[in-house]
């Protein structure tokens, strides 16, 4: 999400893509693919199901990018449409029911531990590391900042603006699918409502982390911090026994305060 927003875009569809790719992983594990016409049944092990799920995420992201670059649909609209489409597909695929009982191998990914630390942490840390290197140390990362900072100047500097934009949506879609993998395997269940509201949490994390919604300014480190704040709020308020209705109000206020502080700093 940080990458998408750095280019001046936004991706509202990550929660739905998370749900759909999670459901597909679960569905493939559980039911396999039946091609009645060919009288063919394909069963999936965990690795194959995961790969297909990630590919689904990537291709939906690619589709978002295509809409944004080729057909000049504003990112907000393109991904809003995808939010609905992917959610609908999830419900169609699951028939509105949770898919459960996904087998030891798959479940161990989300709930297992390595060196006493949950796998989720390692996966997240790995992604953060790669993202930091990508943004700070590669041409592509620099181009992401450039496109968000000034698209016209980027074009004149010989950058393929459309390709950069498509790439960030593909990355966002793929990472949403990774999220789907983690959530589904941790719960040992893919529900059609998984990830609802997560797009907003992830945008909030990016914004709290100091990335500018108009693009060109921000960092992954900031987003990690933002995500931690959101995470601490989400669980901390529950632990403190705060009324769930108030939790939302408080979360919203924190987002506002963070952004206002950032604005004031930025204005010098």
């Amino acid at each position: 999400m940080t990458l998408v927003i750095l280019t001046g875009g936004i991706d509202l569809s990550v929660g739905s893509i998370l749900a759909l790719s999670g459901a597909i992983m679960a569905g493939l594990l559980k039911r396999g693919t039946e091609l009645e016409a060919l009288n063919l049944y394909i069963g999936y092990g965990a690795p194959a199901a995961i790969v297909v799920g990630l590919l689904v995420g990537a291709s939906l992201g690619w589709f978002n990018g295509l809409m944004v670059t080729r057909f000049r649909v504003p990112p907000f609209i393109a991904t809003l449409a995808m939010l609905t489409i992917a959610r609908g597909l999830t419900k169609l695929y699951t028939g509105g029911e949770a898919i459960t009982g996904l087998g030891q191998v798959f479940v161990s990914i989300g709930s297992g531990r390595l060196l006493g630390i949950p796998n989720q942490f390692w996966i997240a840390a790995g992604i953060v590391l790669v993202a930091v290197v990508l943004l700070r140390k590669t041409r592509f990362g620099r181009y992401v900042y450039a496109v968000g900072g000034n698209e016209e100047a980027a074009t004149l500097s010989g950058l393929n603006v459309a390709r950069v934009k498509r790439s960030v949506y593909v990355i966002a879609g793929t990472l949403a699918a990774v999220g789907g993998l983690i959530v589904t395997s941790r719960l040992n269940s893919a529900t059609p409502i998984a990830g609802e509201g997560m797009e907003l949490d992830s945008i909030a994390a990016v914004v709290i982390g100091g990335t500018s919604l108009s693009g060109g300014r921000g960092s992954v480190a900031g987003t990690v911090l933002g995500a931690l704040i959101i995470g601490v709020l989400n669980s901390g308020l529950v632990i403190m026994g705060v009324d769930p209705f108030w939790q939302q109000v408080i979360k919203g206020c924190v987002i506002l305060v963070a952004v206002v502080i950032d604005r004031l700093n930025y204005k010098e």
Binding site: Y145, A146, G148, G149, N150, E152, A153, A154, T155, L156, S157, G158, L159, N160, S212, G216, R217
Partner: peptide
């Protein structure tokens, strides 16, 4: 523009704020 740059052309545009620079960079 990428091909033009590769061919050895360079264009310093008229409006540096709008076409030349990313102000935050």
């Amino acid at each position: 523009c990428a091909e033009a740059i590769a061919a050895g052309l360079a264009l310093v545009p008229e409006d540096r704020k709008r076409q030349g620079l990313m102000m935050d960079m």
